[in-house]
Simulated scan of single mutants.
Amino acid sequence: MFFSLIVPTLGRVGELRALLDSLTRQSLTTFEVIIVDQNGDDRLVPVVNDFTDRLNITHLRSTVRQCNHARNLGAKRAVGDIVTFPDDDCVYTDTVLQTVNELFASFDKPDFITGSVITLEGLRGKSGRWHPVETPINSHNVWTCLIEFNFFIRRTAFTATGGFDEGVGPGTTFGSAEGQDLALRLLEKGFRGLYVPSLHIMHPDKPVTLTTARAYSYGLGMGHVMRKNHVGVATVGTFLLRSVMGGLVYLLKGDIPRARYYFLTFLGRIRGYLSLRAGAVTPAPATG
């Protein structure tokens, strides 16, 4: 199979170089890289030029600084059988594409495949709770089986669903869960997904100060996507309870930054779920 790797990027140079360098070591070489450059200058030109003799790269420019817009823009230029959307600060292990190729060619022939995350040091990351075993994806487990930069989709299925919702994700009020939104729409159309926990992509852990700053927006995204896709009450309740309990646990431990993160996440999920449009969502409260 031929893969199209679509990389939205803004403000990162060294990280993008590291990603491209990792792609030169892939055991499967039938892929293209589509860089969607949202910078207002030429900072990436030297990086792209350094890899044009080793990678099949298309360098697109976008004046719109919004991640899902960039993903959809890149997908329109893609020619691969499979589309995927690595972050610009990811690093691919050497056999990622070969593994995914074999999974798509397997007996079950899924329409989309997801995996989990390890840190750049090769350790288990802190980015969410991951489902422990390989499983078909459904509307309940999609929240612990998917992250956007480790999401591989048959291009025909991606096109059939209309791509990413540009009203969700980084650069919007609803700052997360755009991958889950797309997966839920794929499932609604009858496409089948497979989660493989051993399928790892490397990504840096974010410091708690950064994740706390984003907690409310990320919570809004998850709540909104749950409501939009009519996710079951039991699933909604599970993730509301998790955020409350996480806040209480860290409050009792005296870890105020992490407690604040969980409480802001809870508040965002509630308000995102109750709002059917971005304009109805109130700003994030001051965190002190």
Results as ranks from 00 to 15, higher is better:
Val281Asp: 05
Leu241Ala: 15
Lys253Val: 01
Arg54Cys: 08
Ala280Gln: 13
Glu148Arg: 11
His131Val: 01
Pro86Asn: 05
Val83Pro: 11
Ile57Phe: 06
Glu178His: 15
Phe149Pro: 02
Arg124Met: 11
Phe85His: 13
Ser176Arg: 13
Gly122Ala: 01
Ser4Met: 00
Met1Tyr: 11
Glu188Asp: 14
His230Lys: 14
Ser275Arg: 06
Thr238Val: 04
Arg185Gln: 13
Asp53Asn: 14
Arg43Gln: 05
Asn56Leu: 10
Pro207Tyr: 11
Gly268Arg: 05
Leu186Trp: 02
Pro170Gln: 09
Ser176Pro: 00
Asn138Cys: 10
Ser27Trp: 04
Ile35Glu: 06
Gly14Arg: 07
Val225Arg: 11
Glu32Thr: 03
Pro197Val: 00
Tyr92Ala: 13
Thr99Phe: 01
Leu241Trp: 09
Phe31Asp: 02
Ala18Pro: 07
Thr173Val: 15
Gly80Cys: 08
Arg260Phe: 01
Phe85Ala: 10
Leu274Ser: 07
Tyr216Met: 05
Arg242Ser: 14
Leu28Pro: 04
Phe104Gln: 00
Thr58Asn: 09
Phe31Lys: 02
Ser62Val: 06
Arg77Lys: 13
Leu251Val: 02
Val13Tyr: 00
Tyr216Trp: 12
Asp81Asn: 12
Ser62Leu: 01
Gly115Arg: 11
Arg277Gln: 15
Arg271Gln: 15
Leu55Gly: 11
Ile35Gly: 05
Tyr262Cys: 13
His140Ala: 13
Leu194Asn: 08
Gln180Val: 03
Leu73Gln: 12
Arg260Glu: 09
Arg124Val: 13
Ser106Lys: 11
Gly163Asn: 02
Ile256Pro: 01
Val231Arg: 09
Leu23Tyr: 04
Pro204Gln: 14
Leu199Tyr: 05
Ala215Arg: 01
Glu166His: 00
Tyr92Trp: 14
Arg54Ile: 02
Pro136Asn: 00
Ala278Ser: 15
Tyr195Ala: 08
Gln26Cys: 02
Leu23Gly: 02
Phe3Gly: 01
Leu274Thr: 12
Ala70Gln: 00
Arg155Gly: 04
Val36Phe: 03
Pro207Asp: 10
Arg43Cys: 02
Thr282Cys: 07
Leu241Asn: 08
Met202Trp: 08
Met245Gly: 07
Tyr262Asp: 13
Thr52Gly: 05
Arg277Thr: 11
Tyr216Ile: 08
Thr235Leu: 01
Cys67Glu: 12
